[in-house]
Simulated assay, not measured.
Amino acid sequence: MQELQILAVDPGREKCGLAVVHREQGPVYQTVIETNKLTATVTFLAQMHMLTTVVIGDGTTSRSAQQALKSVRMAGKALTVIPVGEYRSTDEARKRYWQAHPPAGWKRLLPTTMLVPPVPVDDYVAVILAERYFGKR
């Protein structure tokens, strides 16, 4: 049975995208953190939002991130960690970023596919991973 709300992680070598996503309401919280803070941040978010399921991208550093998350406990139980395909999620995240933050000035004349977001979009990737898990795609 799927949870109503999950934590999604886009793991990376230096930074990770995190998102708490409700199945019907969408993203509740999203952020980008340093990878060395992953376990502590996941522990905090799992406790704060009463989460037991984590979906994690199956790409870069996924195995080491999954290994690190095995130490996180909720009510004495390990979190359920489920890998999700990351194929082309970064491209999709860039599109989502520009939808949420439309380019201004002369940049609005360029196709957004030619623009690079000024901030990391790993948190948008995490939202996309959650949506893939929930079957919205």
Rank of each mutant, 00 (worst) to 15 (best):
D122F: 02
D122Q: 01
S89Q: 04
V116G: 05
V81H: 00
W98D: 01
K107V: 03
E24T: 13
G135V: 09
R13Q: 13
T31V: 10
L79C: 06
T90D: 03
A100W: 06
M114S: 11
T113F: 10
V116I: 14
T41F: 09
V125R: 00
T39I: 12
P103M: 03
I82F: 04
Y97D: 00
G12F: 08
F134A: 08
E131R: 09
T31N: 06
I56E: 02
G57Q: 05
R108Q: 15
P102M: 08
P118Q: 05
D10M: 02
T112V: 15
F134R: 04
M114L: 15
M48T: 15
I56N: 02
A126H: 03
E92S: 06
P117A: 03
W98H: 05
L79P: 07
P118H: 00
Y29T: 03
I33T: 05
Y29V: 08
V54H: 02
S89Y: 00
V81K: 01
K77P: 00
E3L: 05
V125F: 03
T113Y: 12
T60K: 10
S62I: 01
M48V: 12
L51K: 10
Y133S: 06
L110C: 11
R108H: 15
T39L: 11
V116S: 15
R88H: 13
K136P: 04
H22C: 08
A130Y: 00
R94G: 02
P118Y: 01
A93L: 00
R137Y: 10
R73M: 10
Q67H: 14
L51F: 09
L45R: 02
R63K: 13
A104V: 14
P83L: 06
A93V: 01
Q5M: 12
K77D: 10
S89C: 12
W106E: 14
S71G: 05
E92M: 11
V9D: 07
H101D: 08
V21N: 01
I33D: 01
P83W: 05
P102W: 04
A8F: 06
V125T: 03
R63V: 08
D58K: 00
V21G: 03
G26A: 04
Q99A: 12
T41Y: 09
P117R: 02
L129D: 03
T35R: 14
A46H: 01
A104P: 03
T80K: 14
